Amino acid sequence: MAGINGFLRAAAMLALVWVPAAAGAQDAQYPIVIKHALGTTVIEEKPERVATVAWANHEVPLALGVVPVGIAAAGFGDPDGDGLLPWVEARLKELGAEVPALFDEGDGIDFEAVAATEPDVILAAYSGLSRADYETLSMIAPVVAYPDSPWATDWRAMIRANATGMGMAAEGEALIDRLDARIGEVAGGHPELAGKAAMFITHLDASDLSVLRFYSDNDTRVKFFADLGLTSPQSVRDATAAGQYAGEVSAELIDRFDDVDIFVTYGDENLRQRLLSDPLALQMPAIAKGALVMLGNDAVGTGANPTPLSIPWVLDDYVALLADAARKGE
């Protein structure tokens, strides 16, 4: 989202969902018991110092007016390389807060850095924590892990789990309601999306289109399609292994995906032209019709994986790209 007008529009949309910094948590009953895929976490009293690990978990406390003591630094989609995505930086400024400690997770979780922040709770509802990661973090503070599977927690479940871990379950539900209202408003303005089947391809190499790697119905990017009125193609569901958030098929089988209306992937104009000129790729009707959404290393590309603060920031632009592709596919 480029230019001052885009920034102001994004800031205005964020104001619709943020909770004022002064908003306090409603009374929670302690101890709070949270069951998740890696066990059960008990939080004996209201956490005062909140740390987060992995992707985007820090957006829940920030959206609820709480500044974490430490967060994972953004490893991609960060335009200026300061470790903060634009909507996170904007929210910190709105709260008048200093940047929290940034954990470098390029080689995995930095347990020493997390411990140094002395947290009362560690939020990781959207993550890929291993059993060893969870047990090590649990020696530092109670950990809110993913409810079901690694990297499969949708944005609503992430808000619910992390907000509950903060003793702010009611505030989390209110945030979900506000985001749902905004999504419904924007998606409702694009009826051409209703019922269209979208496939989300992972990163493609323009020089090698021999394998199609895709996100499954278990991934948050694909789950977000349903919020926008889109459906998941049966061909994608058939090609997905049980419980997996991603899969892959040989491009020689690309004609099986003839029920795909919109093809979404990360890439530039070079990749678009490569797809449109490849005889094998053109066997997928969505590609042949040019019903392509090419996402870059920018706010919209990053925000296609929906999170509490990115949704209002990129929603209008992302839906517009999908709607344009839907029209081309008709």
Results as ranks from 00 to 15, higher is better:
Val121Asp: 13
Leu179Arg: 11
Leu123Arg: 07
Arg274Gln: 14
Ala320Ser: 15
Arg237Asp: 07
Ser250His: 00
Leu62Val: 03
Phe111Asp: 04
Val264Trp: 05
Ala198Val: 09
Glu98Cys: 01
Leu129Gln: 07
Asp27Pro: 05
Glu105Arg: 01
Gly303Asn: 02
Ala2His: 12
Arg274Ser: 15
Ala288His: 10
Ala63Ile: 04
Ala152Tyr: 03
Ala73Gly: 15
Ser138Lys: 10
Gly128Met: 08
Ala73Thr: 03
Trp55Lys: 00
Ala323Cys: 03
Val60Gln: 09
Tyr245Trp: 15
Ala194Cys: 00
Gly301Arg: 07
Val249Phe: 00
Ile311Ala: 05
Tyr318Gly: 10
Arg274Tyr: 00
Ile159Asn: 08
Leu38Ser: 08
Trp313Met: 08
Glu118Asp: 14
Ser210Phe: 06
Thr302Pro: 00
Phe200Ser: 11
Arg213His: 11
Ala74Pro: 04
Ala197Leu: 00
Leu193Pro: 00
Asp238Ala: 14
Lys46Val: 04
Ala304Trp: 03
Ser127Lys: 13
Val17Cys: 05
Ser232Trp: 01
Gly106Tyr: 03
Ala226Gly: 00
Lys46Met: 06
Asp316Trp: 08
Arg178Trp: 08
Trp155Ile: 04
Leu92Lys: 11
Ile34Tyr: 02
Pro79Arg: 03
Gly167Cys: 09
Arg156Pro: 05
Glu135Cys: 01
Gly83Trp: 07
Val236Leu: 15
Leu295Lys: 04
Leu102Thr: 04
Ile140Glu: 11
Asp208Asn: 14
Val53Glu: 12
Ala288Lys: 15
Ser277Pro: 02
Ser232Arg: 11
Ser130Met: 02
Leu321Ala: 13
Arg156Ser: 08
Met284Tyr: 07
Gly39Val: 01
Pro306Gly: 06
Ala174Pro: 01
Asp259His: 04
Ala251His: 01
Trp155Lys: 11
Glu269Phe: 00
Asp258Lys: 12
Thr164Lys: 15
Gly70Ile: 04
Leu271Asn: 09
Val264Gly: 10
Gly75Arg: 13
Ala90Ser: 08
Arg182Trp: 11
Thr202Pro: 00
Asp133Arg: 06
Thr41Asp: 12
Thr302Ser: 12
Lys289Gly: 09
Lys196Ile: 03
Ala291Ile: 04
Asp238Ile: 01
Val293Phe: 06
Thr220Ser: 14
Ser130Pro: 07
Asp27Val: 13
Asp317Gln: 15
Leu253Val: 01
Val88Gly: 03
Ser277Trp: 02
Leu38Val: 05
Lys93Val: 13
Val88Trp: 02
Val314Arg: 05
Gly39His: 02
Arg182Asp: 13
Val17Gly: 03
Asn57Met: 09
Pro306Lys: 02
Leu275His: 06
Met284Ile: 09
Val264Thr: 09
Ser207Lys: 12
Gly243Ile: 07
Val99Lys: 13
Asn5Ser: 13
Val67Ile: 13
Gly303Ile: 01
Asn297Ala: 14
Thr240Arg: 04
Ile4Cys: 06
Asn5Asp: 14
Met294Pro: 12
Arg91Ile: 03
Trp18Arg: 15
Thr265His: 13
Leu92Trp: 11
Ser310Thr: 06
Gly81Arg: 10
Arg49Lys: 15
Val143Leu: 13
Leu179Ser: 12
Gly128Tyr: 10
Asp259Ala: 06
Leu275Asp: 07
Ala187Ser: 13
Met139Asp: 14
Thr40Ile: 04
Trp55Asn: 11
Tyr146Ile: 09
Ile183Thr: 11
Asp110Arg: 02
Gly83Lys: 08
Gly188Ser: 05
Glu45Gly: 01
Ala125Ile: 05
Gln273Lys: 14
Arg160Pro: 02
Asp261Arg: 09
Pro100Asn: 03
Asp133Ile: 05
